[in-house]
């Protein structure tokens, strides 16, 4: 057999798996997004009606809610994670850094569903926070913290702060120590060293991490469902509603394509922005 032939032999199983169980289902889903539901019957065709539903207030609102939550979470997580990563990288003595980092990402290894549930323990009416506030006499009545957007954002920020701390820490450690030394040597103070040297050099890593946050956050169903409740629905929640109640696969498919479109948009924005940075 030729070299190329043998090569194909090695690649074929993975390729068939990906094409058969990802590319083809995705194409079917895309076609489904243009189909229509009449009663319980599916009518294939090219019908943009599902996408037109974006104009409905309930669905437009879900897109908006998802975007608002995701952008807030991304911004807050970056702002929390950067100082944390920098303190671990630059202030914690080297031999304690591994431990410090491990502690900072320990809950990363709790199960996804369990992590959201454990925030309920903290935020519910009888939860840790309310009991503490009541105990200290800071509030007279328990606050409504769970089943709000605040709870969803908190749960997300918790997870993505850990993720971003890991990536930003790795970025900071990869930075040759001599860059900061050179800046100080030439008269820069701590803030100037950060502003002119460390921040610009870690920015590509930060943007990559922020993009990852955006992608994972906007597509997540579990956290808003457990912590946000049903007061306002995010896009993934609306998609799941279509699957459950009405089995409206065409609309669910169309909304999934919209979800993917939002991710693509974010990617294009990041890519453009990154390239600008390099010029």
């Amino acid at each position: 057999m030729s070299d190329t032939g043998r090569g194909w032999g090695f690649v074929a199983p993975a390729l068939l798996w990906t094409v058969g169980l990802f590319v083809v289902p995705f194409a079917v889903m895309a076609a489904m997004s243009l189909a229509r539901l009449e009663g319980r019957d599916l009518v294939w065709g090219v019908d943009w009606g599902n996408y037109a539903q974006l104009a409905k207030p309930q669905i437009a609102r879900a897109v908006l809610v998802s975007l608002e939550i995701t952008l807030t979470v991304t911004a807050v997580s970056v702002l929390l994670a950067y100082p944390l990563a920098a303190i671990i990288a630059f202030r914690v003595p080297p031999r304690w850094q591994r431990l410090a980092l491990l502690l900072a990402v320990l809950p990363f290894w709790t199960s996804y569903v369990v992590r959201s549930y454990s925030w309920l323990l903290v935020l519910s009416k009888q939860g840790v926070v309310n009991q503490a506030l009541l105990g200290l006499g800071l509030v007279a009545e328990p606050l409504t913290l769970a089943n709000t957007r605040f709870a969803t954002v908190t749960g997300f920020v918790h997870f993505f702060t850990m993720l971003l701390t890991l990536t930003i820490y790795a970025n900071l450690m990869q930075l040759p120590r001599n860059y900061a030394r050179a800046a100080q040597d030439l008269g820069a103070n701590g803030w100037q060293t950060f502003r002119h040297v460390i921040l610009p050099l870690t920015l590509p890593g930060v943007v990559t991490g922020a993009f990852l946050t955006f992608v994972l956050c906007i597509g997540d169903y579990v956290t808003p469902q457990i912590l946000g409740g049903n007061n306002e629905l995010s896009l993934p929640q609306v998609i799941m509603v279509q699957l459950g109640r009405r089995a409206d696969f065409p609309l669910a498919s169309a909304l999934s394509i919209v979800l993917m479109g939002l991710v693509m948009l974010a990617y294009l924005l990041c890519a453009r922005w990154l390239r600008l940075d390099r010029v």
Binding site: F22, P25, M29
Partner: peptide, 8 residues
């Protein structure tokens, strides 16, 4: 997102 993988 994995939601889309699952839905497909």
């Amino acid at each position: 997102s994995t939601l889309i993988v699952g839905l497909g």
